[in-house]
Every structure is written in C-alpha cells, then in structure tokens.
Simulated assay, not measured.
Amino acid sequence: MVLTGAIVNALSIIFGSVLGLFLTKISESLKNTVLKGIGLAVTVLGIQMGVQTNNFLAVIISIVIGAILGEWIDLDNKFTQSGKWLERKIGNKAKGNIAQGFITASLLFVIGAMAVLGALDSGISGDHKILFTKAMIDRFTAVVLTSTLGIGVLFSSIPVFLYQGIIALCATQINKFIPPHLLDLIVLELTATGGVMIMGIGLNMLEITKIKVANLLPGILVIAIVVPIFYYINL
C-alpha cells in the first residue's frame, strides 16, 4: 500500500512519545541540558544538509519567497494556535510544553531529506525502506523530545502522516512528468533548503534566536518550482 511507510512513521512517533511520557519527571536542570544538547545536534544536522546545495541562489530565492508567503499566511501563528487548542482539550497544567512540543517536533520530523525521499520511494516504487528507517529514528527522537517538551510531541504524528502521505500519493504520478535527473536535483536543493530551516529550529532550541521557522515552510514548495525553472533555462 502506498501509505504504509507514512502510517508506520506516524505510529512510531506515537509509540516513542508514549515511552517518553514515563521520563517527564526528570529534573528541570537535566531537561534543560538535554534540550540544549538536542539543539546543538539539530543545528549541526541543518548545516550538513544546507551545504549539499549545488545552487545556493535557488535556496536563497526559495527561502525569501517562502518567508513572504509564510508571513502572509501566518503559518507560525496557525501552528501555535493548534498547539494552544490541544492544550485546552487536554487540560495539561504544563500548557506551554504542549504547543512548544507540537511545533518543534512537527517541524523537525517533517523537514528533511528522508521524509521526502522516503515518501517519493513509497509512491513511485512501493519501497518503504527509507520511511521505515526514518520511523526508527523518529521513535527515538520522540522519546527524548517528549521527556523534555511533553505530550505535544505525540500530536506531531498527524502533520507527519499528512505531509508524507500526500507526497507519496502525488509521487505515484510524478515520474510521468518529471525526468529522473531533474527529480534528483529537486530533492538535492529541497534537502539544502530544509537544512536552513532545521538549523533555525536548532538555534531556537538553544534560545539564540526566535525565528518563526514555520513561516519559512512554503520555501519547500517554492524550491520545487524554482529548480525546474533554473534547469530549463540552464541557470
């Protein structure tokens, strides 16, 4: 089934989050240290992804246009409101953790090469190996994030499933319209663009910046348009 990989990934996040709930009673000092450690690792991951680009101009254009669209739509506020809605429904006393956990985990699990490549493989060839691997990684990450940010991490499974599921469904037809070489270029630059955003997440976790990373998300769609344009005009 085309959606098998996306379903397994979402269930792994839920399972990891449930396990992480048993570790939430650790000291605030330890939570803070662990969170900062994750922030450092996420920042390094973002840098590694970002430097893979072969056309940094395309990445910059996509980030700028994506930021304009994101601010216009106000995606960051919509993510925040979704988190606040969950807080009201759950009635958790540590309300701030739910919104923060939901937003941070959603962005971290959605942005990245494995999410896109895995979903594409699921749709094009029915191969779910990449998403199965991502599921194992996300399960461990969910345990750690939930132990520090709370139950909001669990609900990130919803946007992860929708994002990867939509890509997988679209991928069933994508090879009819996009040449394999161009598709490889799109994935490469999409990875670099996502890396810039992931670095923003890491810097936010380190409390160095307060970047509205969610408002940069449209850049993911923009890069998928910019790369073919550059490809056909030989830029």
Rank of each mutant, 00 (worst) to 15 (best):
I26C: 10
F15M: 02
T191K: 10
T133F: 02
L86W: 14
L30G: 00
A168C: 10
I208R: 04
T209L: 05
Q164P: 08
D127H: 06
W85P: 02
F140A: 12
K93L: 02
K212I: 01
Y231K: 07
M199Y: 05
R139P: 01
N9E: 15
S122D: 12
G152N: 14
I198G: 04
M197V: 06
G112E: 12
T53E: 03
Q52F: 03
G165P: 00
F79A: 02
M114K: 06
K129V: 05
I26L: 07
T172D: 01
A105L: 04
V213F: 13
A10Q: 09
V59Y: 06
V222G: 10
G152Y: 11
G165S: 03
Q173E: 15
V187K: 00
S122N: 13
L185S: 02
M49Y: 10
A142M: 09
I130A: 09
I63Q: 01
I223C: 07
Y231F: 14
L185Y: 06
K36Y: 12
A67Y: 11
F102E: 06
M199H: 02
T172V: 15
P159K: 13
I73D: 01
A119G: 10
V18E: 09
I174L: 09
I90H: 00
A94L: 04
L131M: 01
I38C: 15
F177H: 14
V51P: 00
I63F: 14
K212M: 01
T209F: 15
G46W: 05
I65H: 05
A171I: 12
I229H: 13
Q100E: 11
G150W: 04
Q100A: 10
K176Q: 15
F140V: 10
M49L: 09
A214K: 01
G16A: 13
V226P: 03
G202E: 03
G126C: 11
P180R: 08
T4Q: 05
P180A: 15
G118R: 08
L57W: 04
N204G: 04
L40A: 10
G83N: 12
